[in-house]
Lab assay of single mutants.
Amino acid sequence: HNGKLCKLKGIAPLQLGKCNITGWLLGNPECDSLLPARSWSYIVETPNSENGACYPGDLIDYEELREQLSSVSSLERFEIFPKESSWPNHTFNGVTVSCSHRGKSSFYRNLLWLTKKGDSYPKLTNSYVNNKGKEVLVLWGVHHPSSSDEQQSLYSNGNAYVSVASSNYNRRFTPEIAARPKVRDQHGRMNYYWTLLEPGDTIIFEATGNLIAPWYAFALSRGFESGIITSNASMHECNTKCQTPQGAINSNLPFQNIHPVTIGECPKYVRSTKLRMVTGLRNIPSIQYRGLFGAIAGFIEGGWTGMIDGWYGYHHQNEQGSGYAADQKSTQNAINGITNKVNSVIEKMNTQFTAVGKEFNNLEKRMENLNKKVDDGFLDIWTYNAELLVLLENERTLDFHDLNVKNLYEKVKSQLKNNAKEIGNGCFEFYHKCDNECMESVRNGTYDYPKYSEESKLNREKIDGVKLESMGVYQILAIYSTVASSLVLLVSLGAISFWMCSNGSLQCRICI
């Protein structure tokens, strides 16, 4: 991952900044910058967002509201009850120091605090018919004063009620008058409520006091790749198909172990950190130390980045220098085999997901714990399936590479015959000098055995068991695999060879 928040398929997220979902939807004055928000790819909250409900109280069923919003990608904020005409018999300019803005008392931008007009609070009834052709999110509140005197001074009615009804919602609220500790300079409380109004449905408000009335509502448009994440990451000019709280993932790998919460087309989250597919040879310690064997393909974004291909070729060293050249036929066979294998694994496992966190309130801790156990169970199954699949494929890959290298080895052996000696570690020792032209003939299969047989015969008789390297004779190393990324691999195959001279070296080696 890149540690950044990015656009998702070209669409920017909605960053709530210092506000949370509650503050944004109710219209906390400190969240005025969010009022123009219309569309987004996903919503970003920060872990310690401080601006929620400015007048103390709870947004009821907040967790369910977050779940609903996680599939919303755009909205239209509109005046559901026009301020100047909807409440002619009531005062609608209630403000509070708890919702101060720029040093002055204020109130929510989407709600109206209705109080008595003169000395009376006549029963009010108002309704709205949803003609938007889509779901409408309606929010309101109920004020709970701290004393009967406060109730009387604001609403005149000691036994007030609030009723809200639609086809799918029907509740009646009565204020709970009680002494409470002071929070944000208030002994009173406000509880906030919401409902989704279906197209064509009607919502009716009736009250004799204590109503925090809707002013603006939201017509919602769903987008199934949307979601809500909690993150401290910063926004950058970048684009992605998959976003996590820790950063964007741009990967076609089937798995990731970065974060379980994802938005967009994302690899499946697994616990494993070692889900690797081999593309090189079986481990040979001396070669492995030099980083030549054991190439791997990573299938977990965050564990290993991208696929690494092994390729086969020849390396030689003689009086004229040293050089490398790919054996294109065996390399292409290996590439085709690995590509098919990788595609097979991805096809089997690479279903892209959006995974969002589930919200539970403080009273639902047991449910949250149960949900976590269920999620953990599914996660263990996914991890096991992934590891088992790759384990089985790896064994076949190792066998496949062994065969490829063996074929190259036999190709060289059949040409050199007794003009060189096998020394048991995949290397041959020449009994004759071999210049670049000679080396090329070994690589392309045109090695002239009779041409060098007499010199080889004489050297075999002279050496008589002495280690060949100390006599200045020449080696050919018969097994060799270097490691390159897919891009470098293609470039390498396009070149005939490249040279690395070893000044004054008397050794001649050709490596497979």
Score class of each variant (00 low, 15 high):
Asn232Cys: 01
Asn232Leu: 09
His236Asp: 15
Glu237Ile: 10
Cys238Phe: 04
Cys238Asp: 08
Asn239Cys: 07
Cys242Ile: 05
Cys242Phe: 02
Gln243Gly: 06
Gln243Val: 07
Gln243Tyr: 06
Gln243Trp: 10
Thr244Val: 05
Gln246Ser: 13
Gln246Gly: 08
Gly247Val: 04
Gly247Arg: 04
Ala248Met: 02
Ile249Lys: 14
Ile249Val: 13
Ser251Thr: 13
Ser251Pro: 06
Asn252Val: 03
Asn252Asp: 15
Asn252Gln: 02
Leu253Asn: 02
Leu253Pro: 00
Leu253Ile: 01
Pro254Glu: 05
Gln256Leu: 02
Gln256Lys: 02
Gln256Tyr: 07
Gln256Glu: 09
Gln256Trp: 01
Asn257Ala: 05
Asn257Glu: 06
Ile258Tyr: 07
Ile258His: 08
Ile258Ser: 04
Pro260Ile: 01
Pro260Cys: 00
Thr262Ile: 10
Ile263Pro: 05
Ile263Gln: 07
Gly264Thr: 09
Gly264Trp: 09
Glu265Tyr: 01
Cys266Glu: 04
Cys266Ser: 04
Tyr269Phe: 15
Val270Gln: 01
Val270Arg: 00
Arg271Trp: 04
Arg271Cys: 02
Ser272Gly: 06
Thr273Met: 15
Lys274Ala: 15
Lys274Arg: 10
Leu275Trp: 02
Leu275Pro: 01
Leu275Arg: 01
Arg276Thr: 08
Thr279Val: 13
Gly280Gln: 06
Leu281Phe: 04
Arg282Tyr: 06
Arg282Pro: 03
Pro285Thr: 00
Ile287Tyr: 07
Ile287Ala: 05
Ile287Lys: 15
Gln288His: 15
Tyr289Phe: 14
Tyr289Arg: 12
Gly291Glu: 12
Gly291Pro: 01
Leu292Ser: 04
Phe293Trp: 09
Gly294Tyr: 10
Gly294Phe: 06
Gly294Asn: 12
Ala295Glu: 03
Ala295Asp: 07
Ile296Asn: 01
Ile296Thr: 03
Ile296Pro: 00
Gly298Lys: 04
Gly298His: 08
Glu301Ile: 11
Gly302Thr: 05
Gly303Asp: 14
Trp304Asp: 12
Thr305Leu: 15
Thr305Ser: 11
Gly306Trp: 06
Met307Arg: 01
Met307Tyr: 00
Met307Val: 03
Met307Asn: 03
Ile308Cys: 06
Ile308Val: 14
Asp309Ser: 09
Asp309Thr: 05
Asp309Gly: 05
Trp311Arg: 00
Tyr312Phe: 09
Tyr312Ser: 10
Gly313Asp: 09
His315Asn: 01
His316Glu: 00
Gln317Gly: 00
Gln317Trp: 09
Gln317Ile: 14
Gln317His: 07
Glu319Ser: 15
Gly321Leu: 11
Gly323Ile: 08
Gly323His: 06
Ala325His: 07
Ala325Gln: 01
Ala326Phe: 04
Gln328Cys: 01
Lys329Cys: 05
Lys329Pro: 09
Ser330Cys: 08
Thr331Ile: 03
Gln332Gly: 03
Gln332Ala: 15
Gln332Leu: 09
Asn333Cys: 08
Asn333Val: 10
Ile335Lys: 00
Ile335Trp: 07
Asn336Asp: 11
Asn336Lys: 12
Asn336Gln: 15
Gly337Ile: 13
Gly337His: 12
Ile338Thr: 08
Val342Gly: 01
Val342Pro: 06
Val342Ile: 15
Asn343Trp: 01
Ser344Gly: 09
Ser344Gln: 12
Val345Trp: 04
Val345Arg: 00
Val345Gly: 04
Ile346Asp: 02
Glu347Phe: 08
Glu347Leu: 05
Glu347His: 06
Glu347Gln: 15
Met349His: 00
Asn350Cys: 07
Thr351Gly: 14
Thr351Ile: 09
Gln352Ile: 04
Phe353Ile: 11
Phe353Gly: 11
Thr354Asp: 01
Val356Met: 08
Gly357Pro: 11
Gly357Val: 08
Lys358Gln: 13
Lys358Asn: 07
Glu359Phe: 14
Asn361Ser: 15
Asn362Pro: 02
Glu364Gly: 07
Lys365Pro: 02
Lys365Ile: 07
Lys365Asn: 06
Lys365Phe: 14
Arg366Asn: 08
Arg366Thr: 14
Met367Tyr: 05
Glu368Asp: 10
Asn369Ile: 07
Asn369Gln: 05
Asn371Leu: 05
Asn371Met: 10
Asn371Phe: 09
Lys373Trp: 06
Lys373Asp: 08
Val374Trp: 09
Asp375Glu: 14
Asp375Leu: 01
Asp376Phe: 08
Gly377Ala: 09
Gly377Tyr: 09
Gly377Ile: 11
Phe378Asn: 12
Phe378Ile: 09
Leu379Trp: 11
Asp380Phe: 04
Asp380Pro: 02
Ile381Thr: 02
Trp382Phe: 09
Trp382Ser: 04
Thr383Gln: 14
Tyr384Met: 11
Glu387Gln: 13
Leu388Gln: 13
Leu388Ser: 07
Leu389Ile: 13
Val390Trp: 05
Val390Lys: 14
Val390Cys: 10
Val390Ser: 01
Leu392Thr: 14
Glu395Thr: 15
Glu395Pro: 06
Arg396Leu: 01
Arg396Ala: 01
Leu398Glu: 09
Asp399Leu: 01
Asp399Cys: 04
His401Cys: 04
His401Lys: 10
His401Met: 11
Asp402Phe: 06
Leu403Phe: 14
Asn404Met: 14
Asn404Gly: 03
Val405Ser: 09
Lys406Glu: 12
Asn407Phe: 00
Asn407Arg: 11
Leu408Pro: 07
Glu410Gly: 07
Lys411Arg: 14
Val412Lys: 06
Gln415Tyr: 04
Leu416Asp: 07
Leu416His: 04
Lys417Gln: 08
Asn418Ala: 07
Asn418His: 07
Lys421Gln: 12
Glu422Val: 13
Glu422Gly: 02
Glu422Thr: 08
Gly426Cys: 10
Gly426Asn: 12
Cys427Lys: 07
Tyr431Gly: 06
His432Tyr: 15
His432Met: 04
Lys433Trp: 00
Cys434Gly: 08
Cys434Val: 02
Asp435Phe: 00
Asp435Gln: 05
Asn436Arg: 02
Cys438Val: 05
Met439Glu: 03
Met439Ser: 07
Glu440Val: 07
Glu440Phe: 05
Ser441Trp: 00
Val442Met: 08
Arg443Phe: 02
Arg443Trp: 04
Asn444Lys: 12
Asn444Arg: 09
Asn444His: 06
Gly445Ile: 11
Gly445Met: 14
Gly445Tyr: 13
Thr446Val: 15
Thr446Ala: 09
Thr446Glu: 05
Asp448Met: 15
Tyr449Glu: 11
Glu454Asn: 08
Glu455Leu: 15
Glu455Arg: 03
Glu455Pro: 06
Lys457Arg: 08
Asn459Asp: 07
Arg460Glu: 11
Arg460Asp: 09
Arg460Pro: 06
Arg460Gly: 02
Glu461Arg: 15
Glu461Asn: 14
Lys462Trp: 07
Ile463Gln: 07
Ile463Met: 11
Ile463Leu: 12
Gly465Tyr: 08
Gly465Phe: 11
Gly465Glu: 10
Lys467Met: 00
Lys467Trp: 00
Leu468Lys: 01
Leu468Gln: 15
Glu469Gln: 07
Ser470Val: 11
Met471Val: 14
Gly472Phe: 14
Val473His: 08
Val473Arg: 09
Val473Ile: 13
Tyr474Ile: 13
Gln475Thr: 05
Gln475Phe: 10
Gln475Asp: 15
Ala478Pro: 05
Ala478Lys: 02
Ile479Trp: 11
Tyr480Lys: 06
Tyr480Cys: 11
Ser481Glu: 14
Thr482Ala: 13
Val483Phe: 15
Ser485Lys: 07
Ser486Tyr: 08
Val488Phe: 13
Leu489Gln: 11
Leu490Lys: 15
Leu490Ile: 13
Leu490Met: 12
Leu490Tyr: 04
Val491Gly: 11
Val491Cys: 04
Val491Pro: 06
Val491Trp: 14
Ser492Arg: 11
Gly494Gln: 01
Gly494Ser: 06
Gly494Asp: 02
Gly494His: 00
Ala495Ile: 02
Ile496Asn: 07
Phe498His: 10
Phe498Lys: 05
Trp499Ala: 10
Trp499Asp: 07
Trp499Lys: 07
Met500Tyr: 00
Cys501Ala: 14
Ser502Leu: 08
Ser502Ile: 04
Ser502His: 10
Ser502Val: 13
Gly504Val: 08
Gly504Cys: 01
Leu506Cys: 14
Leu506Lys: 09
Gln507Cys: 08
Cys508Asp: 03
Arg509Lys: 13
Ile510Tyr: 02
Cys511Ser: 04
